[in-house]
Simulated assay, not measured.
Amino acid sequence: MSQTVDRALSILPLLAQGPADLGQVAERLGVHKSTALRLLRTLHEHGLVYRQQDQRYRLGARLFALAQEAVENLDVREIAHPHLVALNEQIGHTIHLAVYEESEVLYIDKVESRYPVRMYSRIGKPVAITVAAVAKLLLADLPEAERRALAEKLDYPMYTSRSIPNRVAFLKELAVVREQGWATDLGGHEESINCIGAPIRGADGRVVAAMSVSAPNVVVTAEELLSLLPLVRRTADVISREYSGAAPSGDGPRTPRGNTPPKEAS
């Protein structure tokens, strides 16, 4: 990447934190104000940056439009969304859809819970990669060499006492997830939040996305959430068939009866 392009792109995450004036941009980039001004003008011409009346710069509307367009053109999101909404209408909990891109797991869709408690998560935001159920599902499907190389590079923050502490434990968890075909995060990122997830697969059987259902333990216990796993997996299977173009089997999302909750992943 050329130095000019690199500098121009570096302005965007700076302005994502809030409006900044020319001096602040120049200082952050480590360049003269004239260089910073030239870069800002170019970004402004493309609608990616906007100059306010107070002479500070902020992100432009064109950037948000491009981001929204990119999200909407992710086929798996378009296909999955109505199924996620239908599942949310049945169970009421927060539902996420995520994909793996360039060593990050990102949320590409979210359906909010029907109760007042809200989760701090946003579309486009990276997840806590070592603990999130969707991350475990996506990384567990990677080829072994890639999986091990990634695990070697990751940090392992202890968000709670139930967070995965190191590479060995992480690889062990991914092996379990790969074998069983579902994943959990039971208080690993936030003590009060539990999550279960299932993979969405393409025609070749590879995991192209992962969906999850999350709820605070003041609303449902971990055991109650785990009892929904068969329904979550069926929803993921329906999305997978539609995404891969397979013939529908007629077993769309419905409330399971008489299911025994699966054991928690170690």
Rank of each mutant, 00 (worst) to 15 (best):
R122G: 01
R118E: 15
E101G: 00
E112T: 11
E104S: 10
R114Q: 11
V134R: 02
I123E: 12
R122N: 09
Y115H: 15
E146N: 03
I129V: 13
A133G: 07
R122Q: 15
P116K: 04
S121C: 04
L137S: 05
A145K: 09
E102A: 10
T130W: 03
K125W: 08
E146I: 00
A140P: 06
E102R: 12
R114F: 07
V105W: 06
L138I: 08
V131S: 14
T130I: 06
E104I: 03
V131M: 02
Y115I: 14
S113Y: 03
V134P: 02
R148M: 07
G124D: 06
S121A: 15
A132V: 00
K110N: 08
Y100H: 13
R122D: 09
R114K: 15
A145R: 14
V99L: 09
L139F: 08
L137E: 02
V131C: 13
A133K: 01
L106R: 15
L142C: 00
L138T: 07
S113V: 09
K125R: 14
V99P: 02
S121R: 08
D109N: 05
S103H: 12
V105P: 06
P116E: 12
P126I: 13
A128Y: 07
A98F: 06
K136P: 11
K136E: 06
I129G: 04
E144H: 11
L142D: 05
D141R: 09
A149I: 01
E144D: 13
E144N: 05
E146F: 01
M119I: 15
A140W: 06
L138F: 01
K125S: 15
V127M: 14
E101S: 12
V117Y: 12
T130Q: 03
L106H: 02
A149Y: 01
Y107D: 07
A132I: 02
P143A: 13
D141Q: 04
E112R: 11
Y120H: 15
Y120S: 13
S103F: 04
K136S: 06
A128N: 13
K110A: 01
P143V: 09
S121G: 14
V127F: 03
Y100G: 02
V111C: 00
K136I: 03
P126D: 10
K136Q: 15
D109T: 00
S113L: 11
I123C: 01
P116L: 09
L142Y: 08
R114T: 14
A132K: 04
L137F: 10
I129E: 10
A128D: 01
S113C: 04
S103G: 05
Y115S: 14
A135F: 00
R147W: 09
S103M: 11
I108D: 04
D109E: 12
A133N: 03
V134C: 12
A98G: 07
V117W: 13
L138S: 12
E144A: 09
A145T: 10
D109L: 09
A140T: 11
K110D: 00
K125E: 15
P116C: 11
S103V: 05
Y100F: 14
S121L: 02
I123V: 15
G124A: 07
M119S: 10
A133C: 05
A135S: 15
V111S: 03
E101W: 10
E102Q: 13
M119Q: 14
E144P: 02
A133L: 02
A140I: 05
V131Q: 09
T130D: 09
D141S: 15
K125N: 10
Y115A: 10
Y120Q: 12
A140R: 01
E112W: 01
D141N: 14
Y120V: 12
